[in-house]
Design a protein around this nucleic acid. Structure first.
Lengths: 91, 91
DNA sequence: CAGATATTTTGAAATTCGTCAAAATATCAA
DNA sequence: TTGATATTTTGACGAATTTCAAAATATCTG
């Protein structure tokens, strides 16, 4: 439904980097933060944007919060991309 | 190469609408403008962003300028998407 | 050339975005 | 409870984005 949130979420390089890091498996906010030269507060903001787009899920484990890709939404993203790029007739 | 421009270009709903309209075939700037409740100047700015991302091509035909999808870049876009979303192991 | 049409460019205003520092929240351990 | 750790939220700020109105550019017609 909220396709705009997805495109907006993908528009920032740091957020795309987060997604790529999560392809290697779930990671805590702190572990992800090590890969960035940025405040944890700023990263947390990016997590929120990715969550709003339903691209990642998070789960508290003790004092840390584990982020992971929401793989179930990836078919929807693929559909969005097909909608934009896929429906072209034979040139 | 400049993958960021592509994601940034897709982040705006008006630009995505332009791409969808162009799926129906090439159109002049004026024809495209009819579909929007926006100044032609603003639309022109969006054309520039799409051109910078290499998503559209334009060609002058008399006093008008015809925009069309740059289909040759779509494989690159697909590759970008696969890079972000495709590399996940069997669930 | 002058005027009309189609489009872009410029300059400025309003909004959104990314970031930081600091404060707040939540959990664990003693 | 107190203190330490992990993370988020808040508030502020500068930079980037979107938009408009107006000026500029390019092409065609007479």
């Amino acid at each position: 439904m909220p396709s705009h949130d997805v495109f907006k979420a993908l528009a920032d390089p740091s957020r795309r980097k987060i997604l790529k890091l999560l392809q290697g498996g779930s990671k805590t906010a702190g572990t992800l933060a090590e890969a960035f030269d940025m405040t944890k507060g700023s990263l947390s903001h990016h997590f929120n944007v990715l969550k709003a787009a339903d691209l990642v899920r998070c789960e508290r484990r003790g004092q840390q919060i584990v982020y992971s890709l929401n793989t179930s939404v990836f078919e929807d993203v693929a559909a969005l991309m097909l909608d934009l790029f896929g429906t072209r007739r034979a040139k």
